[in-house]
């Protein structure tokens, strides 16, 4: 049986916004297709496991982020090497911000990031909180809708030429201004969308699983369709909420 090795970075610190929901979705959707998901928790000071197929970073509150930031900042090379070796990556919220070059707060204090993604984040006036819907093109010509909830004080600015994860339809996205949401670098995705992200966007979970499997299989395998009736319903409600009330500054 083909095994997918998922390295979950800082599970003790970055775990709010239902990160374990995302992991549960990876596991269930892999197992129902006959693949085993092995989750390896990677704490501060611990090296990424070898043969890593998928990297996951969740969100945390300010204190928790500050605790892991120095360690993450030293890992840029290690994570980039895993990506070059074919690993896929999903980073949500705080994990997304810290994969950029860094986070500058209102007092100009700079928290260094890993520098894996071509972006930086600066603190803004007020938090960007609410439902979001975005459109993404993960495979050429295939537009997908992804829905979630965002809650961030930071405004993330992509470098010129960097590719966003998607375009904002309703909600704020990276900075409430550019119309961009998240960042995409090959098989790596960073995003502010939580809620959790994957249960109501199962196609994104499957895309990431396919990319993770491609590391050993050479290309993403055809994953058999699952009964996603409940997932579609949850997606539809979240999409409706984004349309109704996304992107309103409180």
């Amino acid at each position: 049986m083909t095994r997918i090795r998922l390295c979950h970075l800082y599970p003790d610190q970055l775990n709010i916004y239902a990160d374990r929901g995302n992991i549960a979705v990876f596991r269930s959707r892999a197992e129902r297709r006959g693949y085993e998901l092995e989750v390896v928790g990677i704490g501060v000071g611990e090296a990424l496991a070898p043969e890593c197929d998928l990297i996951y970073l969740g969100g945390g509150q300010d204190r928790e982020q500050a605790l892991i930031a120095p360690d993450l900042a030293r890992r840029g090379g290690e994570i980039s090497r895993a990506l070059e070796d074919g690993a896929a990556l999903l980073a949500v919220c705080g994990g997304y911000q810290l994969l950029g070059r860094g986070y500058r707060d209102r007092f100009d204090f700079e928290m260094l990031g890993a520098g894996v993604l071509p972006l930086e984040t600066v603190a803004g006036e007020g938090r960007l909180i609410g439902d979001v819907s975005i459109e993404c093109e993960l495979d050429p010509g295939e537009m997908l809708t992804v829905v979630g909830f965002e809650n961030h004080g930071g405004r993330t600015l992509l470098d010129p030429g960097a590719v966003p994860f998607g375009r904002v339809v309703h909600g704020f996205g990276n900075d409430g201004d550019s119309g961009f949401e998240g960042c995409r670098l090959g098989k790596a995705i960073g995003t502010y969308l939580h809620g959790p992200l994957l249960p109501r966007n199962p196609w994104l979970a499957d895309w990431l699983l396919g990319q993770a499997l491609a590391r050993t299989l050479g290309e993403p395998p055809e994953l058999e369709a699952l009964d996603d009736e409940l997932e579609y319903q949850a997606h539809a409600v979240a999409l409706h909420r984004a349309r109704e009330r996304g992107g309103k500054l409180r």
């Binding site: 239902a18 929901g21 439902d131 909830f149 959790p196």
Partner: peptide
């Protein structure tokens, strides 16, 4: 409005 808490 954020229902993600049910996963925790």
């Amino acid at each position: 409005q954020d229902v993600s808490w049910i996963w925790d």
